[in-house]
Design a protein around this nucleic acid. Structure first.
Lengths: 102, 102
DNA sequence: TCGTCATGCAACCTTTTGGTTGCATTTTGT
DNA sequence: ACAAAATGCAACCAAAAGGTTGCATGACGA
């Protein structure tokens, strides 16, 4: 999945809350995850679907419920993208500094 | 600025291209940045404004042109947010592993 | 001074997004 | 077997987002 899709998926309060909960170590079903989000169950479901489409979470249907897990590989991808930007920027600053020191 | 706003701002192809260009070390004006983005100048201007509102870039008016610079602090904030999520997740996995080894 | 260059502002349009409600379906416990 | 639980699917709606065009404005160079 593209970093763009990942960033886009992270840019929403409900979805951000969902993945924050997911990272806390507990095991969640779709229903449990949907509680107290300030939106209806179906509203939450849509956001969960969005996260799954961006491959940030994975859905594991099991009987009548569906368990949800975090996919840290996608998060890592996004983090590395930012790291690279920062690194390029820092190298630029370094180059400028060296020029001024000549 | 909130990480949510930062992620939201990163979740768009035009804006992602803009900050990628900015990180490359060259100096850009709004006009230069707006070239070859596949959208009109005013379209690009809107996205630049969005990035500035999320505090990912900074605009420095100088005479008839405006120079644009990257604000790596915002990027760092976003990166650290992801890092924390990953870390919490990893600690959970570690705890589970230790349980199974008892 | 005067054209032109870099930019800003505003109205407008279309598509996407976030959210809702209502109903159908499958599983599970008693 | 049957009621309740967990979820899925679809239609619908309002607001936000991404984009456009047209025009106004201030700064610079010849």
């Amino acid at each position: 999945m593209s970093v763009e899709a990942i960033f886009k998926a992270l840019g929403d309060p409900v979805r951000l809350e969902i993945i924050t909960r997911l990272s806390d170590g507990s095991s969640y079903t779709i229903g449990k995850l949907s509680e107290d989000l300030g939106v209806s169950r179906q509203g939450a479901r849509k956001q969960i679907q969005t996260l799954a489409s961006a491959d940030i979470i994975q859905l594991h249907p099991a009987g009548r419920e569906t368990r949800v897990s975090l996919n840290t590989e996608s998060l890592q991808q996004a983090r590395l993208f930012i790291s690279q930007l920062e690194q390029q920027w820092d190298q630029r600053l370094l180059a400028l500094k060296q020029l001024s020191e000549d």
